[in-house]
Structures are given as structure tokens and as C-alpha cells.
Amino acid sequence: MSQRIDGQELLPDNDRQAVAMRYLLGTLSEEERTRFEDLFFSDESEFEQLEEAEGELIDRYVLNELSADDADRFKKLLVSPRLAERVEIARILTKRVASESQQEDRVYPIKVQTPKKGEPEPPWYKRLILSPIPAFALGITLLLPTIALVFVSMKLQNESQRLAYEQQQLENLKKQIEEQRARSSQLEATLNQTQREKEEQQQLAEQYKQQAEQPRSIPVLGLFLNPVTSVRSEGGKRVAVLTLPPNASEVGINLNVTDGDYSRYEAIVRSVDLSKEVAHRTNLKPFSKKSRKYITLKLNSKLLPRGTYNVRVNGVTTTGTTENFNDYSFQVSSR
């Protein structure tokens, strides 16, 4: 493996780390430094190599493996709290690694047992082992398979170690795939939900639109009028006012005919402002409400623009002739 700096130098991996460390220690020439910066800014792997070299430099500093000059140069980098913290962690890691190493040494202590004087003679099988010639033969016989066994077990250990690493990597990959799947399904669910909501909103919007398009009208507005309709207000007389909302389509005017004895009435509505007849209704039957009698005059609201109106009511006699009964008056105002 080698590296190209600005197309000019080819460096093997070891030298790459060396160059990175020299950059960090500030011992590269200005030109080399500029090239190196260009490189690590544009190349992710170079940046990672440089971070790795930073870690290596920290370890060497902690282990006092740097020359005095380099150690001084390195200290200048420790204005960064991050690097200073890394140094502290590296010290703990070094201690931990050392203690791990000592523990491993204690696991297999070498013990050599020698027979002591005055001890009882060992049994025949032990003597056979202790006797030089048979022991040698036995030793050789046992040694060869042992060597083979050790070799095989070492191989196995190596392989199992590799396998463990690969399994670890595989586990990590599986985990990542699972996470991605979970995320993907979550996103899908969110998307579906959003689509459903969107559809619902569209339906609602459609409904609202339809409702808005439909003319919403109030069919009948009721008004009760007495023959001489007056509302006393601060001593003056005032004509009854009918306020028509823009969506009113029809108006029902109830005329008080309690004093009349006619079985049928007719009503003529005139606009006072325009001096013209706007409606003429015949064959109006009275109805009773709370001991009073009324006739209802239904008028299309379009017939009643803003203004003052007079209603002349005639009673129809049994012979079919009409007699003037009463006049009513009202005013229309629109919102």
C-alpha cells in the first residue's frame, strides 16, 4: 500500500503514518504541510489516517516514547481540551493494558517439582517415567502427538479468533440491516399515515367545497305585525324593522287579524319608496295562536329590497266581496 501526495510522492503505509505524525508535530515544511492539508481536506480516508496518527502520537507521548523535542512539540497541541482529554484517557488505557498483561502472565505459572530427600520411593509407574531411557522414549512418544496437538489447537485458536471477529462484524452488519429495516418500515408507516391523512383532508376539503357551493338559505323569516305596529322608544313611534340576512330566501309576515271576523283575507304589499305594488295574496285563512288570530303572508325576499312597505289587508265577505280591514307597515333592512 502506498500513498500519493499531490501526485508527487509515493509513500508506503508506514511512511504515511510518519508523515501524518510529522504534520501533527509541525515538522513538515510549509509546502509539504499545505499539500498534506489539501489532501486530508479532500480525502476522507486521509483524514481518518491522520486521526489514527494522532492516537498513535498520544500513546507514544504517554509511554514516553517521543524524543524530548517531539514531546515538547506535542505539548503545544494540548491547548485543545479534546486532545488533553485524550491524553488522560490514554493514560488509563495504558494502565489497563499493563494490568491485563500481568493477569495473563499469572494464569500459567511454570512449576517445576523435584523429588526431595527422605521421601518414600515412588511407585513403579512413576519410576518408569522418572527413569531416563524409558522416560525419553515415552517422552518422544508423547511429545510428537503433543506438538501436533498444540499446532492444531493453535491453528484452531487462530481460526476461532478470526471467526469471532468475522462473526462480530457479521453481527454488527445484521444489527445495522435490522435497524435500517425498522427505520424503513417506520418511514413506510409514517408515509401511509400521511397519505391517509392527506386523503381524509382532501375528502373534507371536497365536502367543505360542496357545502360552500350549495346556497345555504334560511327559508322563512318570521315577523309579527299588528295593525298599527309601533314600538315605543324614547317617546317616539317606530315602524317594525325586518333585517334580512343575505341568505334569506323567503319571508313570512304574520299579520294580526284578531279584530276581524272574516274567514278569508287578501293582502296587497306596496313599496312606499317605489310607490308600487310588490305582491298580492288572496285566500288567506286566519289561524289562532295564543288567543290571537293571524294570517301569514309568504313573500320571496327578492321582492323586498331595502325600504319601507305598506300592507293593506282586506277581509273577504261570505258573498265574495272585499272590505278594507286594516293597514300594516314595516321596514326592510339588509345586512
Partner: peptide, 8 residues
């Protein structure tokens, strides 16, 4: 030294 070691 101006660029003294930063104390963590």
C-alpha cells in the same frame, strides 16, 4: 510558553 498545555 504561550501555547502551554491545556489542563483538562
Amino acid at each position: 510558553d504561550r501555547l502551554e498545555q491545556k489542563v483538562p
